[in-house]
Simulated assay, not measured.
Amino acid sequence: MKKLYLFDFDGTLTYKDTMFLYLKFYNSTKFYVQFVKHIPLFILLKLNLADAEKVKKSFISSILKGESLAKIDKKAQSFFEKFERDIFRKNALEFIQNIDRTQTECYIVSASLDIWVKPFAEKLNIKLLATQTEFADDIFTGNFIGKNCNGPEKVKRIIEAVKGRKFDKIIAFGDTSGDREMLAWADESQFEFFH
């Protein structure tokens, strides 16, 4: 039986959101300065008066824009090594490790940026679909390639990735409204399964 497993990352496989954690780890001084500057935007976001993708891009860009791919990758690896044990849900880890991979494809489908989720995906031997960081001459431009990988975009990216391959069963795991479309698209959906 051919199966496709789709896992949201933040909150589903982890105990907490990794964006703030990684950005703070990357440069804590810059993080706090930019966090304070972005408070008005975060408030507008909570009130549904701002576009989530724009606020996210603005905040990430304020800390990482102009940084080299080598430095960002190195920090992502250090971040993974430091936080892997603390933030990853043990039961989620066990579940993934026990999946029979002979007839199965597994993906992490995350709105988080590919840069800091990649080491986790590599460790788990899972393919990654995430919000993509744009680099020009190995320097982060502050932009994303394509859309934020959230909501309907998650389904679009999955369909592109599996390119018409047939699966007997598609199982999706999520924990927020950003996973709603992916959960609805799958044959079987698990909400807060590892909580």
Rank of each mutant, 00 (worst) to 15 (best):
Lys46Ala: 15
Glu188Asn: 11
Lys71Gln: 11
Ala50Ser: 15
Met19Lys: 09
Cys149Gly: 04
Phe193Met: 07
Val162Thr: 13
Leu129Asp: 04
Thr18Leu: 03
Phe144Asn: 07
Glu81Ser: 13
Lys57Leu: 08
Ile39Ser: 03
Leu41Pro: 01
Gly174Arg: 08
Thr14Cys: 02
Ile170Lys: 13
Phe35Gln: 07
Asn91Gly: 00
Val155Ser: 09
Ile87Ser: 03
Ile139Arg: 10
Lys54Cys: 01
Ala130Asp: 06
Asp86Ala: 09
Val36Ser: 11
Glu94Ile: 12
Phe135Ala: 06
Val117Tyr: 09
Cys149Ser: 07
Asn27Asp: 15
Thr102Ser: 15
Lys71Cys: 00
Gly66Pro: 04
Ile108Tyr: 09
Asp175Glu: 13
Lys75Glu: 07
Leu44Asp: 13
Pro40Gln: 12
Asp179Trp: 08
Val155Phe: 09
Leu49Ile: 15
Glu67Met: 04
Phe31Gly: 04
Asp73Tyr: 10
Leu4Glu: 06
Ala50Ile: 12
Phe42Gln: 04
Ala184Leu: 14
Tyr22Cys: 01
Leu69Gln: 14
Ser62Trp: 10
Ile99Gln: 08
Leu69Ser: 12
Met1Trp: 05
Leu21Gly: 06
Asn48Gln: 14
Lys30Tyr: 06
Asn143Gly: 01
Asp17Leu: 01
Asp100Tyr: 10
Thr102Arg: 15
Phe9Leu: 08
Leu69Thr: 09
Gly164Arg: 10
Glu84Pro: 00
Ser62Ala: 15
Gly151Tyr: 09
Lys123His: 14
Phe135His: 07
Gly146Ile: 01
Thr102Asn: 15
His195Met: 01
Asp8Gly: 03
Gly174Glu: 08
Gly151Ile: 00
Phe95Asn: 09
Thr29Ala: 13
Glu160Cys: 00
Thr14Phe: 03
Ile115Leu: 04
Ala121Met: 09
Leu6Ile: 11
Leu64Ser: 05
Lys74Ala: 13
Leu128Pro: 03
Lys123Ile: 01
Phe35Ala: 13
Leu93Tyr: 11
Gly142Leu: 06
Phe35Arg: 10
Phe59Met: 08
Glu84Gln: 10
Phe7Glu: 08
Gly151Arg: 14
Lys82Ile: 01
Thr18His: 04
Arg157Gly: 02
Lys75Gly: 01
Ser177Ile: 15
Ser61Leu: 06
His38Glu: 12
Ile171Pro: 00
Tyr26Met: 08
Lys156Phe: 07
Cys149Trp: 04
Leu124Ser: 03
Ile108Trp: 08
Tyr5Gln: 07
Tyr15Ala: 00
Ile72Gln: 02
Gly11Ser: 05
Leu23Ser: 03
Asp86Pro: 01
Asn125Tyr: 07
Leu49Met: 15
Thr12Trp: 06
Glu188Tyr: 08
Ala184Val: 12
Phe120Asp: 02
Val55Met: 10
Asn48Gly: 10
Tyr15Lys: 12
Thr176Arg: 07
Asp137Glu: 13
Thr141Ala: 05
Tyr107Thr: 12
Val33Ser: 13
Ile108Glu: 04
Ile139Gly: 08
Gly66Asn: 09
Ala121Trp: 04
Lys166Asp: 11
